[in-house]
């Protein structure tokens, strides 16, 4: 079982993630080309300006207005992306398979970062259950996406601390990670791919065409 999830399924997950992401981005670009306004309105300068104001925490008025959400959201997203890439155990796997390796974070730090991701998921779950606006627009798919996101980190945390049966937990963890990779291009987790584009378009339309700002 371990060989299956570590070998062919991992291959499949990465291939689907990369090819799927490319397909979805190309599909979006083709759709945008069909709309005559999108590309003529784009401007690199205003896209970057918009991104700078929205990917740096507290760099726009709305983020300052909601300090708790901003802090949680940034901590969650940074840890979500950074932890799996710079986790020692993951880098060892890359090293074993491909003979490539890079700088890793200490295991204590990644342990805390994992906790931050899990805590972030709990925070978002709490909002979904309690904030009337969010609750009203939440359905099964939103809980599923949250579960897909949380599961690799929960199982990874358990596996690292060797609670329960390590081998089983490890297999579940790898599977959970693969499910998340596959889900990214084909669910609304695709905001990971599209964020840059939607932000850039709105920034361009606001700045380049409408001579205003969007932060």
């Amino acid at each position: 079982m371990y060989e299956l999830v570590r070998g062919p399924l991992a291959w499949a997950a990465f291939i689907i993630f990369i090819a799927g992401s490319l397909y979805r981005i190309l599909y979006m670009l083709a759709g945008s080309k069909k709309e005559k306004v999108v590309f003529p309105h784009m401007s690199l300068k205003h896209s970057l300006a918009s991104l700078v104001h929205w990917v740096i925490p507290f760099n726009n008025q709305y983020m300052k207005q909601r300090p708790v959400f901003t802090a949680v959201s940034f901590a969650f997203h940074i840890c979500l992306i950074v932890t799996p890439i710079f986790l020692l155990a993951h880098i060892i796997l890359w090293d074993e398979s491909w003979n490539i390796s890079w700088w890793s974070l200490s295991e204590t730090i990644t342990d805390y970062m994992t906790i931050i991701v899990i805590a972030g998921c709990i925070f978002f779950l709490y909002r979904r259950l309690t904030d009337p606006v969010v609750k009203n627009v939440t359905d099964g798919s939103d809980y599923l996406l949250l579960a897909i996101t949380a599961l690799p980190f929960i199982t990874g945390f358990i596996a690292y601390h060797q609670w329960f049966d390590y081998k089983t937990m490890l297999i579940i963890h790898i599977l959970a990670g693969e499910i998340m990779l596959i889900a990214i291009p084909f669910t609304r987790l695709s905001h990971m791919l599209f964020f840059v584009f939607t932000r850039s378009y709105f920034g361009s339309e606001q700045g380049h065409v409408k001579h205003s700002k969007d932060w």
């Binding site: 979006m28 945008s32 709309e35 909002r127 969010v134 996406l145 609304r188 905001h191 584009f197 939607t198």
Partner: peptide, 16 residues
Amino acid sequence: GGRLWTYINTCIHCGL
């Protein structure tokens, strides 16, 4: 076209 499709598929229903 692309705008509507991307907006619908990107919105994470956060309510902000």
